[in-house]
Design a protein around this nucleic acid. Structure first.
Lengths: 116, 116
DNA sequence: GGTGATTGTTTCGCTACCGTATCATTCTCG
DNA sequence: CGAGAATGATACGGTAGCGAAACAATCACC
């Protein structure tokens, strides 16, 4: 089932949800960082630095830095790939899952209060 | 009519739309900047620096800087309030409207391709 | 009309991000 | 084994954001 959004609905949903995100965000993630986090948690693994860089259309240092930041916040974890030790496998954490759960709640909440 | 989103739908919508935003964004706006822009265009005027700062829950220099940046991009315009010359009225521009229209299209597009 | 409040901007020191280029490690394959 | 490719991290110089504090301009009001 697909979602039929009106232009007004789409922008109002984004507005109210991102507003609440800004107001409440303890972590103050960048748009890019948030995209990376969502990608890690919503797309089936494995996730590598190179793969994420290609998907996002950014350079590899951007991913490394984002993983540094989000790793320090406990939202994400790095592990060496034992099969190919050049690779880094990016893994999920409990804190990261909780963070995204809260984000989902905000979006659902604001969608519920939407008036076209 | 309100929008009944499932947790999966909510996060996938945010993921795919923000991903496309990152991939395609010529302007590379911050989450805060995007929130400010949406607020200016979706909430009835007038908009002032102080009002925006209070709404977003940030300090005034944040708004001033965001208006500087987005003003340089032509997304927003400043005008002095003639009634009270201390106030700055933030106004919309054609380019800003087009930018948000494009954002709305992305969200609608990704909502349409959603599978729960 | 002058004092204090209000508004937006600027300054300061700091932190974090950016892209390019380079590096260390590891793998591939002849 | 050894040369070249591939992967992720780091170094570098530059830019832009941050909060706190100080600032200039304007208003309000006695």
């Amino acid at each position: 089932m697909s979602l039929a959004l009106s232009p007004s609905q789409a922008l109002h949903l984004w507005h109210s949800a991102s507003l609440r995100l800004v107001q409440s965000d303890a972590h103050d993630l960048t748009l890019r960082q948030l995209s990376i986090l969502l990608h890690i948690y919503l797309v089936p693994p494995p996730h590598t630095v190179r793969g994420l860089a290609a998907t996002l259309g950014v350079t590899k240092p951007v991913i490394t830095r984002a993983l540094d930041s989000m790793g320090a916040l406990g939202l994400v974890r790095r592990t060496r790939d034992e099969k190919d030790k050049r690779n880094v496998i990016i893994q999920r954490t409990v804190d990261g899952a909780l963070y995204l759960e809260r984000l989902g709640d905000i979006i659902i909440d604001e969608g519920r209060e939407l008036t076209p």
